[in-house]
Amino acid sequence: MPSTPSSPTTSSTEQDRFAQYAHPERLVSTEWLAGQLEDGRVGVAGGIALLESDEDVLLYDTGHIPGALKLDWHQDLNDQVTRDYVDGEQFAHVMSKRGIERDTTIVVYGDKNNWWAAYALWVISLFGHEDVRLLDGGRAKWVAEGRPMTREVPEPEHTAYPVVDRDDSRIRAFKDDVLAHLGGPLVDVRSPGEFSGELLHMPDYPQEGAMRGGHIPGAKSVPWGRAANEDGTFKSREELEAIYEQEQGLDPRHPTIAYCRIGERSSHTWFVLSQLLGFDDVRNYDGSWTEWGNSVRVPVER
């Protein structure tokens, strides 16, 4: 985690707002980004790399924040053969093509309350890229504020991003890790219907291919969207603590694992727990229900 972030030149109110979080340097405001854009610091060599990561692969092409480049979760961050993330070499390629260096400040934003942006940030964090931040409120807030959009696609000069080994040990959990963790705190961030298992039984609505419905034993149900305000920004620290700590009884000192269906929604919750609330040890189980609900003889609770 970055220890000495450059201090964003935000207005005092926004600075105050982020200061409440455990890692305020992980968030930037739309206002701050607009200022950086005006100063010509976005998408230029030595400046800030701005990446848009959406659920919809075409949304970037309909218009994006000036200087932003597309980062597609499926095509850029997933290996196309094995169910896994890209390796160090592929990741270096993805970053180099976007003109990013190891010490570049990356700002990620996207649709759906930054759902996929948080996923991208989590994958980028697997490679230990130190300075990667989310645009609070994401694409929707930027658009709602009437800020500039463009269809112009930047063509950055390629860099030589180093090949770094992916570190799956700190913030990623595999099925065996979850089995060993049973009895410990788990957060299921899917919808209530997915949690209870009833969605699998609705006729004619093929869900994402799980053989069994339900949840991992002992998991708390906290749909991921509860962490966001109407405008897509994160709720205040106090409100988040009320949900995760007081209501659900999660403890920042206890190792905690979050999961959903394929690990994207739970990246958002991983961000909330580890970066905003300062939980010491949070891992995202990206195999999630599409692995657990298809596995033979793993315990399922309904």
């Binding site: 919809d56 692969v57 075409l58 949304l59 092409d61 309909t62 649709d111 929707a140």
Partner: peptide
């Protein structure tokens, strides 16, 4: 919705 261009496509 316009925000779902792939689906619209």
């Amino acid at each position: 919705p316009q925000e779902a261009p792939t689906t619209r496509g």
